[in-house]
Simulated assay, not measured.
Amino acid sequence: MPKLIKVLIVLVLVAGAAAGAYYHFYYEQERKPSDRLALYGNVDIRQVHLAFHANGRILHILVEEGDTVKKGQLVAELDPVRYEANLARAKAEVAAQDQVLARMLAGTRHQEIAEARARLAAAQATLRDQANLHRRNQGLYQRKAISSQTMDTIQAQYENAQQAVNQAQQSLDLALEGPRQEDIAAARAQLEALKAAQALAQRELVDTKLYAPENGVIQQRILQPGDMASPSVPAFTVALNNPVWVRAYLPETELGKVAPGMSADVSTDSFPGKTYKGWVGYISPTAEFTPKTVETTDLRTKLVYRVRVYVCNPRNELRLGMPVTVNIPLKQKADAHRGQSDPCSGS
């Protein structure tokens, strides 16, 4: 019997040692800080309500619902006749004003100056004749050989000749001086205004064509050929599916470990073993209670912060509302994806 008791004591000691080892390996290891953070959320699809930046009747619709479009792809166009006519008129007005300015900058032609000199010479010759006539008749008038009425007529002709010489001299001076600088500046400003109107007409003609702003999928085609389009009425709804957004929630206790720009791996049950490249794009500055749709092991009354994670989706496998798991390595630089024009280009 004592021998049996000793065996039981030995078994108890062995079981205690095993339990201690189990506790140390599992429980103590679980208490060590992990180098990865797991978040749970759902996929959000970004949408663009695509509308024309001009008014007019739709001439062509080039895509259907469900079509994949590339950035810059033409998807629809308006009837451009009115905009083409407006642009042609603006170009003609610019050309006419350009000639006006060129004429002013070139100054007076030498033929016009010669003509002004000739008019001055003719006026001076007439003045000499009128001066001689006035001098001769002045003596006759003093001797009462002619009437005062005749003398008044000769005096008027003499003064008119003087005025004609002055006018011809002014015309020659203006021809030699050329246009005023103020007039040239006004003509140049008018030309710039017409060029701006031409640029606007050109832009309005370009706006009769509607292009996809980013890569995506035509989710809804709202307008049809023949409909009247305007900037306030969307023609399409485009889903931007690469990258997509993941809406997740960060516990308050983990807030200091995550920063915008940190890379992340995203996985889903729909494609086991496959991960998608992502990065933290936004962390809400405002705390909120955990939504009921988010399944975490923490109590739902704890405060969390909404996180937006961008995820590359080149094959369009991540769909709207799909539940996903986001794993964020904590030992990394916070600005890993900042400054990149297209982080999904290599995915």
Rank of each mutant, 00 (worst) to 15 (best):
K6D: 07
V12I: 15
V14A: 12
A17H: 01
S34W: 00
L39M: 01
F52L: 03
H53P: 06
I61Y: 02
E64C: 02
V69L: 02
K71L: 05
K71F: 00
G72K: 05
L74V: 15
L78R: 01
N86D: 15
A90T: 02
E93N: 15
M104E: 11
L105N: 09
R109I: 07
Q111Y: 12
E112S: 13
A114Q: 13
R117M: 13
R117K: 12
L127S: 07
A131W: 06
G139W: 00
G139I: 13
G139K: 00
Y141M: 12
Q149A: 01
A161D: 00
A164E: 07
A164T: 09
Q167W: 03
Q170C: 02
S171D: 13
Q181R: 05
A186T: 14
V206H: 07
T208C: 14
G216F: 04
V217R: 05
Q220W: 10
L223F: 03
G226M: 05
M228K: 12
T237R: 04
N241K: 12
V246K: 10
R247N: 06
E254D: 13
G256N: 08
A259L: 15
G261Y: 00
G273L: 04
Y276P: 06
W279F: 03
L303E: 11
V304H: 01
V304Q: 03
P314C: 01
L318C: 05
R319H: 11
G321Y: 00
A336L: 13
G339R: 09
P343T: 10
